[in-house]
Design a protein around this nucleic acid. Structure first.
Lengths: 152, 152
DNA sequence: GAGTCTATCGCAACACGTTGCAATAAGCCA
DNA sequence: TGGCTTATTGCAACGTGTTGCGATAGACTC
């Protein structure tokens, strides 16, 4: 767990700098929320983050958490997308940009890294002219095993 | 308005048959909800549908509307996906299957018909093995004019 | 036609997320 | 240091969607 430089620390530092550069304030709550998001690397729903933040600081309210998440997103440090069930899922920009593919059959969910997604994004651009956002790429369909099962 | 056969009528008839074939019941409320969905061809959020149904029958409750929409979906007569803001958007299967592409810059939203989406779906299948669901294809990115504006 | 079974309905409560407003407190300038 | 400005917070209410449960009513059998 040691040896490598802690990316969380540098994140909080950069975040603080970015916030203050905009004339905004860096508060303990924001630090806490950034820490929680960093600690739950990968994905966390809004509700999960609220819960974890409140575990560390019971005085924090959902509105504060969501507003801070919006701020992180505005600054480009975090992104969110809507999962299959419509719940919001947040992740840090630190995590490599990636998309999601969800199987409607068995509920499996696989991630899609930039390399794997490249031909998809290219196809989208050809078809629509849009430069699609990998972080917001949230697909649904049938995974290979469910397709095989359905074919039987 | 006349001349062509009314697709709504045949939809309700087929729907009724499908529901009853499963040993389930065809009620006035379900008829009404199917009518409202058919009348709002294209897209309607859950809340919009609830509102319209209640306008026609004030005794209807949201839970009934949502449960009926779920039923329509189970039967394959309707689909729903989550828009950019996480709101649910429903449409009838009658409408040709299509995806959506939303511009994060100007908010424009274009639809993607089956032909246009084909290379995208092919790319998804190659990259992941998943057979992606066109109706659930909800992309975000930058439209050509926003990209041009950003490049300047 | 009477009785039974069960799908559907309405109600109420809940979960998640958003927004407006007043109080607080952080930062800045003199 | 003292006072001012304003970003942030907490509260409360709202919007959207979901779920559990008891009551109702439709469909089916005899």
């Amino acid at each position: 767990m040691t040896g490598a430089p802690d990316p969380r620390e540098s994140l909080a530092t950069r975040l603080q700098a970015a916030v203050q550069a905009r004339g905004q304030r860096w508060t303990e709550q924001r630090q806490l929320i950034a820490d929680v998001l960093a600690a739950s690397d990968g994905h966390a729903t809004g509700a999960e983050l609220v819960e974890r933040v409140r575990a560390a600081d019971p005085s924090a309210t959902p509105s504060t958490v969501y507003r801070t998440l919006d701020l992180l997103e505005e600054l480009g440090f975090a992104t969110h997308h809507h999962g299959v069930d419509g719940r919001e899922t947040y992740h840090l920009e630190e995590v490599v940009a990636h998309g999601h593919v969800h199987c409607n059959g068995c509920g499996a969910e696989v991630e899609l890294d930039a390399d794997a997604a490249k031909p998809i994004l290219t196809a989208i651009e050809r078809a629509t002219g849009y430069a699609a956002d990998l972080d917001h790429l949230s697909l649904q369909g049938r995974c290979p095993s469910c397709r095989a099962a359905a074919a039987r």
